[in-house]
Design a binder for these strands. Structure first.
Lengths: 224, 224
DNA sequence: CCTAAGATTTAGCCAATACTAATTTAGTTT
DNA sequence: AAACTAAATTAGTATTGGCTAAATCTTAGG
């Protein structure tokens, strides 16, 4: 079997995967920002990962995961999301904290523990933020849905996903009742603020916050 | 707050604590053996830990934890034993595997998660091997009990503790029904083999195996 | 009381992973 | 097309934590 990969390597691969989902280019700076590391450190690591055939690196033009690299990334993401759900559901860890906790645990759980957690949760397919949990084989369900900020006034839908990147933002979303499953109707949109109705309650939230919320592909028109 | 200590440092402190429980001297070689590391590496680390005031190091004569060092060690051991119990009880991880799993998890769980685990378990005081779980304040119950190998034929007692150092040995103990709570009667002792009755069943086990088993301070004489 | 064996430490080295500062490249602007 | 800017890379350095080989200390036996 191959030598186990370091936590640092797993973090880089995960970050590359997640960035690649949103932009066609995975740049050095983007990675550096995401990992809170100097750009030079990223370049360094990219050369190492390329030598290990975990990424393909075109100097000055970004990196992409190889198949092997993607496998690793998906396995780490599976750990992460299973742990998030487990911590939330079985141990009552609050939704804004599960991400940070899982970021550390994801690197140290065994295959066996991963299986037991998945079984205990009933082989779930979504984490508490609505992100899909990759299968052991590395398949991931597509994440559909439209941005709350891109819905027109009058539209309504059910929240399917919220970004888990920043714990504070998640805490604010939770406080506003904006978590997966909640029903939202857009009342009015402005450049800085969005007015919505959540589970009957009228609310105004900042556009920044609303940008972390995704709705299902549901009705464009309000129900009668 | 102080910078968080590395996993390596935590491992050294834990090992020093555990060795100190059994021998008055904590030697370089003993540590090297326990941590599976070269003796020179231990010396190196001892100097570092001494500079950090986590241990007192008398060159050529061993180390001892400072109060600060002992606090850290006990906190790590608390994590370890809570996790062992949690994994065993809530996730069904087998008793010979919990130790290895906990060895990795112990370094990454937050204070908050520690608390939630302790609460979920009802603030337990013993781990699955019968080792006491230190309190948050760093108190540890004394581990009494006599070695199974030192009991005379005819004596009986309840197993209070088994060594968890080697997974294979624990697996053998589990297979023989020799886990904390089991009632044992010593039938005969020899240099290589011990004959016992466990929960009614006659068994012969190697002395090496029996050396990992501790009985309560109970009856020296067999019940009528 | 001296010496050899065994334990410990020292010296010098390496890999992983990060940093800053300096340089180079790519892409855009005039 | 020259020049500028932003991004990326290179060069050189530090720290952590490990290693081997060589030197040194402790201690038990003779």
């Amino acid at each position: 079997m191959p030598a186990p990969l370091s936590q640092a390597i797993e973090d880089y691969l995960k970050a590359i995967y997640l960035i690649a989902q949103q932009s066609r280019q995975v740049t050095t700076t983007e990675l550096a920002g995401r990992l809170d590391v100097a750009p030079a450190s990223v370049t360094n690591m990219m050369k190492r990962l390329a030598r290990m055939r975990l990424v393909r690196h075109t100097p000055y033009h970004g990196v992409a995961l190889t198949d092997t690299g993607a496998k690793v990334a998906l396995q780490v993401i599976r750990h992460h999301r299973l742990l998030e759900l487990y911590l939330s559901r079985q141990l009552g860890v609050s939704i804004d904290q599960v991400h940070g906790e899982a970021d550390r645990l994801e690197h140290v759980i065994s295959e066996e523990l991963e299986d037991r957690i998945a079984t205990a949760l009933g082989e779930p397919s979504l984490d508490p933020h609505g992100d899909p949990i990759p299968t052991k084989g590395g398949e991931v369900a597509a994440t559909g849905g439209r941005l709350l900020t891109e819905a027109a006034p009058g539209e309504r839908g059910v929240i399917t996903r919220v970004s888990d990147r920043d714990a504070r933002r998640v805490r604010e979303l939770a406080a506003a009742g904006l978590l997966p499953g909640a029903e939202v109707e857009v009342v009015a949109t402005g450049p800085r603020v969005v007015e919505i109705r959540v589970e009957g309650q009228r609310q105004r939230i900042s556009t920044a916050l609303a940008e972390a919320v995704y709705l299902d592909a549901g009705d464009r028109a309000p129900a009668a």
